[in-house]
Amino acid sequence: MSLAAEAFVSQMAAAEPWPESATLYQPLKEDQILLSDCASSLAVQAYLRMCGLPVQVVCRANAEYMSPSGKIPFIHVGNQVVSELGPIVQFTKAKGNSLSDGLDDVQRAEMKAYMELVNNMLLTAELYIQWCDDATAAEISRPRYSSPYSWPLSNILAYHKQWEIRRKMNAIGWGGKTLEQVYEDVTQCCQALSQRLGTQPYFFNKQPTELDALVFGHLFTILTTRLTSMELAERIKSYSNLLSFCRRIEQTYFEDKSS
């Protein structure tokens, strides 16, 4: 989307209030969605719940192809479609809902930096494990990713996706990494997040921000998803403040509706 179009959309967005019929689209929860997509989707859901904006989650087998950027998740609000956490945060801001308004410039810089840390390390590590670790790719990622399609389309789509992710990993220099090095990166990232969080309830003390939603989305999904090995979850479990952070957000924002 061009910048002019983006500015136009945010102008339009400001005009209308948040409708009751807002929907969030993601791949099929039981048999299709993969760890990284599930984490991104949960992050957006957590963010919208923190804003107090109601959204209905809809699972579609072709969600990836419905999304304007080809990425999961995306929301359909009124007559607009917005995908990924960053643009969605801007979109809700245009509608007058923002979690980071109370922060000063330096804190906002810090928040953005930590969000990029999560994208740069955790998200990339999730993608690496899904598609570059042969055992996980063969047992989990390819079968799940292609589950809605019949042979031979299923094979074509799954291998194409794997090829695309591997090219991306090579381009950013992760192609030569071993699984052990990736786990090590995840540990470092978690350590940084744990240090930054300290004993506070949220990253910027009392009030949750989009950073909290993003971190929760990724950590909670990693902790609750079964992969071929539980190594990734084990790495996170050694940071007790991150665990209680996940539990706190789950209880505050998700418990009342799910139970």
Partner: peptide, 18 residues
């Protein structure tokens, strides 16, 4: 400090991504 070390990682990621 450990906190500043964490900040270093975060800002380095910001540079890489943005």
């Amino acid at each position: 400090s450990a906190r500043q070390g964490a900040d270093t990682m975060a800002y380095t990621a910001l540079l890489e991504e943005k």
